[in-house]
Write a protein that binds this DNA or RNA. Structure first.
Length: 277
DNA sequence: AGCTCAACCTGGCTGC
DNA sequence: TGCAGCCAGGTTGAGC
């Protein structure tokens, strides 16, 4: 579920319930996530105030008094705000109580993570897993001509496909597998093209498409914000209408050529062989 | 340095 | 109906 738009929408959905609130308890149902949930988390966080919730790439950053808690949702993670007394469902791995409010992390596949970066470890930008992350698609470093320039510069000499280059998030973060296919369709670029062979003009199209596709998805997610705060039922997947993703063999929405599905770097890619050159 | 691939884990779907 | 096999929104780390 979570690519950047879903994480952003989650942030927007949960922040009003948690910011400024005091954490009263942490309950770990199963701490064996991508990395083990730190043993000390309950002791550390109890009675600390959650001052703000930010996003960096696909990580959510919860600023507490003495450090930052980082949550990544992996492939199947979902965060929900519920009443504490509501029954905790299967696959809820960890929950955080703020008085009567509970923030619950549901994650069947356990690829998500809950980590802690204390103040003594310096600013959260130093967090080891952030070292290789690219710039934020909506920050100034990627704005205007900057995005194209970055994508172009950093790709010179690279032989990997542009699909894998974008997906890696080493230049710009947040383009996951679905939106990567969608972005390249929007930019009319063939996903198999080596990253190092794409001109600056074409990277300008890609940079614009990255922002457009992500922005659209955030907007679509925003309309289902309630999914994150209602207790009953599963939060639905985003009803984002894809033009190519998961449409193998179906007619291209623009030219009716059958959409192709290929595998790149162990992941599926979808594209229109006629529209994308 | 950069590329490829296995691995982490669980459920759902397809096809025999 | 049962079961094997494959697929799934992410990311790291080993090996070449």
């Amino acid at each position: 579920m979570p690519e950047l738009p879903e994480v952003e929408v989650t942030k927007l959905g949960i922040a009003p319930y948690l910011e400024g609130k005091t954490l009263t308890e942490v309950i770990v149902h199963d701490g064996r996530l991508r990395w083990p949930v730190p043993e000390h988390l309950q002791k550390t966080l109890r009675n600390q105030i959650c001052h703000s919730i930010q996003r960096r790439g696909k990580y959510l950053l919860f600023q507490f008094d003495t450090g930052v808690m980082l949550i990544h949702l992996g492939m199947t993670g979902v965060l929900r705000i519920q009443k504490k007394q509501e029954e905790s469902k299967k696959y809820n791995r960890i929950e955080f109580h703020f008085g009567e409010t509970a923030l619950r992390m549901h994650d069947p596949r356990k690829f998500g993570s809950v980590l802690w970066h204390s103040e003594e470890q310096g600013p959260v930008e130093n967090f080891p897993l952030f070292k290789k992350l690219g710039v934020e698609p909506f920050e100034s470093e990627f704005a205007g001509a900057n995005g194209a320039q970055l994508l172009y510069e950093r790709s010179r000499g690279r032989t990997i496909s542009v699909k894998q280059y974008l997906l890696a998030g080493e230049v710009v973060v947040g383009v996951g597998n679905i939106y990567c296919s969608e972005t390249l369709f929007e930019a009319k670029i063939n996903p198999k093209t080596p990253a190092g062979k794409i001109s600056k003009v074409r990277y300008a199209r890609i940079a614009t498409a990255v922002q457009l596709i992500l922005k659209k998805a955030i907007k679509a997610g925003g309309s289902s914000l309630k999914d994150f705060v209602h207790s009953d039922g599963e939060p639905g997947h985003f009803m984002v209408l894809t033009k190519v993703y998961d449409r193998s063999g179906l007619p291209c929405k623009e030219c009716h050529t059958p959409i192709k599905q290929i595998t790149q770097g162990q992941r599926s890619t979808y594209y229109c062989p006629a529209c994308q050159k």
